[in-house]
């Protein structure tokens, strides 16, 4: 399995991280080193083994479906880079 610059660019896009064109070959190389290391897992016989979903044998607890928090608009917005009129402001999303 080898990652080329095109795949590296695609992964960066999926991760929403801008990577400049000239940095892609080095990034692809790093991915190859890490994935090469991970390839060892192919040696393991995993037939009939269920993928782990929870490390402790515990059922996910359920809670009553009711409002238990809210009305904290100012606190929710207090760390926003751009908050206006009680909302988070972002660049235009829909033309």
């Amino acid at each position: 399995m080898s990652i080329d610059t095109e795949t590296a660019a695609k992964v960066a896009k999926l991760a929403r991280i801008r990577v400049e064109e000239d940095a892609l070959p080095a990034l692809a190389q790093e991915f190859n080193t890490i994935l090469g290391f991970i390839e060892q897992l192919n040696e393991v016989d995993v037939d009939g083994i269920e993928p782990m979903t929870s490390v402790t044998p515990m059922r996910l607890p359920r809670r009553v479906d009711e409002v238990n928090d809210g009305d904290q608009q100012a606190k929710v917005l207090s760390n926003a880079p751009d908050a206006r009129e009680g909302f988070f402001a972002v660049p235009k999303v829909v033309e």
Partner: peptide, 14 residues
């Protein structure tokens, strides 16, 4: 190939 296999190996480690 990667994520599910890793979760299976994790079960074996445990």
């Amino acid at each position: 190939a990667y994520y599910n296999r890793a979760r299976k190996v994790r079960a074996l480690i445990k």
